[in-house]
Design a protein around this nucleic acid. Structure first.
Lengths: 242, 242
DNA sequence: AAGTGGTCTAGACCACCGG
DNA sequence: CGGTGGTCTAGACCACTTA
């Protein structure tokens, strides 16, 4: 477990990491200012920030743009195949969830999305953009694209609640097959300020294409998760290789 | 798509990003030196490296420790539920795969791993460590932990080949249910030099717990993927929320 | 208004890779 | 051994948050 290092940044990393694990900053939930820390470690702010960046990459701390460095809470465990409600999922893990609707409009579908939704470029879709919080911290920015033929009048409803619920109770639609892709990528410009991260910061990008009980593609989600907020956990029957 | 920015680093980002997409560096497969670039953009190496770091986070370029910056090849599409061979998977995507065995020994299982394997702490397991390359580039460091009761004598075999194949042909074992977790995390010290990344760099950490046709847990894989080398793609029947 | 993080300058030395 | 990237110094100004 020991590091073979003599880099100043690594030494700071280890020292801070130990102090964090001992709960030294747990009370305030945040670290002292960068200038104060760099003084403590007798180094430059640049070097100190290098160390903080490493701890951030390890998921031990996170930053909010221009606000400071905070102790990272545990990751939310998330199964993209599991069509439960965000709020229920959070609650089962002892966390408090919150959903904010950014906007909900009719939009023309892009070429790329049309492919995913089995629609034609330029057709109209419902686009719902939402921000979701765990224990008050914004962790997920998501854009839902719905094929409107299946959901007439949906945009008039209360969209802070679970879409899964709306689908079932209002339209008799339940989820069937799911396909998702997941890759690291930069956070989109619109999402950055909402998640309080710098534009272009790394995020986990998950797209999900959902079908209903009749195997029709009904919607597509584009999710941008904070890098450190998520642990994907999937259990399923294995598929034979081809 | 436009950025509202006047940061030097962002301007460099956009300029480089454009030149990369136009294939300007495709011939050499790599970027010019940092000093040369910082001169071209009339800035400091620090600022230039800030820009390179952003392009790296976006997966456009990658670095090899002390060797330089390279144009990132396309991501490998990977389905952790899909128990096909690494080599076959690569080949279907027009890529060349290669597997190197780092070592293969009997080891005492840690507490954490014992849990995953449904074994007891301190019991013996087979540990196989391998490095896998795509088109010559090391992208995956993986530790396989096997319950030895199911695989007597396996360590004597040629382990550069597919374990899936060995399981079936030598032991009559095929994969059944799979559970995997996936989260970003730092690359472990042993893997860093093999993947040619700096110790503590971010990586994608995937653990997989595999069962056989009788639903017995047979092995557990701990995979560390280069951050930019991977796109997870899963299709499966959705699971009803609880 | 004061203090924070975000960005930048203009150098420097070191460790390592490659010829 | 020359050139590369990796690390570091000691400042500075700006944009934003917070009080």
């Amino acid at each position: 477990m020991e590091q073979f290092t003599n880099k100043t940044a690594d030494i700071i990393c280890q020292a801070l990491s130990q102090r964090i694990r001992r709960g030294e900053f747990a009370a305030q939930g945040r670290l002292p200012g960068e200038r104060q820390l760099s003084e403590q470690f007798a180094t430059t702010r640049i070097t100190l920030r290098e160390a903080l960046g490493q701890l951030e990459a390890q998921g031990l701390i996170y930053r909010e743009l221009r606000r400071g460095w905070f102790i990272a809470p545990p990751r939310l465990v998330y199964n993209p195949l599991h069509r439960s409600h965000f709020h229920a999922m959070a609650q089962r893990q002892g966390r408090a969830a919150n959903t904010e609707v950014i906007d909900a409009h009719v939009a023309a579908v892009s070429h790329e999305l049309a492919d995913k939704l089995a629609m034609s470029e330029g057709e109209e879709v419902f686009r719902i953009r939402r921000l979701r919080r765990i224990d008050g911290r914004a962790v997920l920015y998501v854009e839902h694209y719905l094929n409107p033929r299946y959901f007439p009048g949906l945009l008039e409803l209360d969209l802070t609640q679970s879409l899964t619920d709306l689908y079932l109770t209002r339209y008799g639609i339940r989820y069937g097959r799911v396909r998702f892709t997941m890759l690291p990528g930069p956070v989109p410009p619109l999402a950055a300020p909402l998640l309080k991260v710098a534009a272009g910061s790394p995020a986990l990008f998950i797209t999900r294409i959902n079908r209903d009980q009749h195997d029709r593609i009904i919607d597509c989600d584009c999710e941008y998760w904070r890098y450190d907020a998520l642990c994907v956990d999937v259990e399923a029957q294995g598929v034979l290789g081809g």
